[in-house]
Design a protein around this nucleic acid. Structure first.
Lengths: 213, 213
DNA sequence: TTAAATTTGAAACTTAAATTTGAATTATGG
DNA sequence: CCATAATTCAAATTTAAGTTTCAAATTTAA
């Protein structure tokens, strides 16, 4: 069993395993991934999984925890006694955060793919982590939408509109093979600014249109 | 090897296998699904997979083909010499088709989940089928968006706006565990009309707003 | 009705992957 | 520097799943 001593070499083995496992799990999914391929890529022995994580599933859980723990949460903040920034600014911050996240160099490319796998086929025990990390985003976008639609907007409309905004971001972030094939020019692009600008403009136009009705 | 005679009982075995395999592949994904569970649910012997489909992967391919072949393609048509219906009507037809599809009784619930798996982790050899079935939808929504945005809209804007509309539909159709958890009230709903109405209203407001800028 | 072909069933076989084992190596604290 | 604990390694074991086999049952066509 892993020891409290945690010397540098052992920590390195553990880190390499998570790194390699993240890539392979993202490529193949939990079940199609083999521990051999993981340990080969990590350059460690097969027994290291058992030693550091007990088994393949605990390794997977550790990988998910690692990926989620690195998710940036960078809301547009404001002082408690000051008025909040205009919803348009918060909307842009929301979209920017979600889209930049999956391109950021501090966040390996496999994180988004891995989470996409989880969304299609959630594994148990991770619901709690997801809730903790995703609920704040949901509340944030709902607040933005509520501010733009105005105080009289029914809750149902707020929820649906929040989903409409989020779904556009998700299509970029958890881009699938299908999207890639349909619109290669959009997903190859180096810079995300046009995508961010579009989603913000599209969503703002929609929300303002809904309000004026 | 399957015979040309295709008597009723054999056809029934084949049908039950595809049905059961569809459910199990959708629940667990291609790799996590076991042939034993499939044959158990289908109430047939393990050898039936070998006999009718050669192996697990051919069975999977048959299931995907089956699911895709049932995808309804019901564009809003018009006579060749008549003007096309207004884009607002075509937009509603597009959204309705995609959303109703996944609830339609003729199309079991597992179809959408199965295709969601394919989107996250495509298996080879099916690209062609996808292209054949999905490209028409892409062209259709792009035409709608182009008509609403007007002849001067840049191609880039048209593509992005088409993605924005489609992404909203996909969120409903390929609803994930996450969406279910975040908005149970929306996904439990019996009737899709409010969802359709929202997506149409949101998208129309957005497109008109973009045009007027 | 019968012979040939098709389909199904139960069990055995094969393969591949996960896990365990125990020895060898490396690090740590006294 | 030694003793002890932690870690790594290569090989063996176990497990689980897909596939094959062949005999029995059923269907088809003459």
């Amino acid at each position: 069993m892993p020891n409290v001593k945690n010397n540098a070499a052992a920590q390195e083995t553990r880190r390499r395993l998570i790194e390699a496992a993240g890539e392979i799990f993202a490529e193949r999914g939990l079940h199609a991934a083999t521990t051999k391929e993981i340990t080969d890529r990590a350059g460690v022995n097969a027994a290291a999984i058992n030693y550091h994580f007990r088994d393949k599933f605990e390794l997977y859980a550790a990988v998910i925890r690692h990926a989620l723990s690195q998710a940036p949460v960078a809301f547009l903040t404001h002082a408690a006694d000051a008025p909040p920034p205009p919803p348009e600014d918060r909307l842009r911050a929301y979209v920017t955060n979600i889209l930049q996240d999956f391109r950021s160099s501090s966040r390996p490319a496999w994180h988004a793919t891995l989470i996409a796998h989880e969304l299609v086929q959630p594994t148990a025990a991770l619901q709690a982590v997801m809730e903790e990390l995703i609920r704040p985003w949901v509340d944030y976008i709902e607040g933005i939408v509520r501010d733009i639609l105005g105080p009289d907007a029914p809750r149902d409309q707020i929820i649906r509109a929040a989903m409409s905004v989020s779904s556009q971001c998700f299509l970029y972030r958890y881009k699938s093979q299908l999207t890639y094939w349909l619109y290669p020019q959009l997903l190859h692009e180096e810079n995300l600014q046009p995508g961010i600008d579009h989603i913000v403009a599209f969503s703002l136009a929609a929300l303002r249109g809904l309000r004026s009705q």
